[in-house]
Amino acid sequence: MKRVYVNEKWCLGCHLCEYNCAFANSGETDMAKALRGKVIHPRLHIEGQGEIHYAVSCRHCTDPLCVKSCISGALSIQDGTVKIDHDKCVGCLTCVLVCPYGAVAPGPDGAATKCELCLENACGAPACAAGCPNNAIVYEEREEASA
């Protein structure tokens, strides 16, 4: 399955991916309209210190702790992608607590949000990877087993 991978060596810490993510999931067609004057809630985050940066995003684990621990059944695996049903989420944020990667975050209305690989929005493929200027985050098939 194609996944989002991070090439930390090439990450510039420009944070473009966060904005591309927020835009992709905004439902708007104009980035300025979607994001200007708003606090963004991207589904991935750039972490780092000094000159080292890297994106942290959902690994779409094969045995995900978030899905196991969700008390309302809002999280599920569909075709290998870990998805969240916004209407079922009760905002207990257990998933935020248990995700070892810190890839789930509270959204603007209190419900949890997480990366769904942009398969549910108009992009159809990860906007973070498509917009990265330096191939520091890529969406590709790799031969490695996931967690």
Binding site: H15, Y19, A32, L35, R36
Partner: peptide, 8 residues
């Protein structure tokens, strides 16, 4: 009108 203050 276009600047989203992303600070890129």
């Amino acid at each position: 009108a276009r600047c989203i203050r992303c600070q890129v």
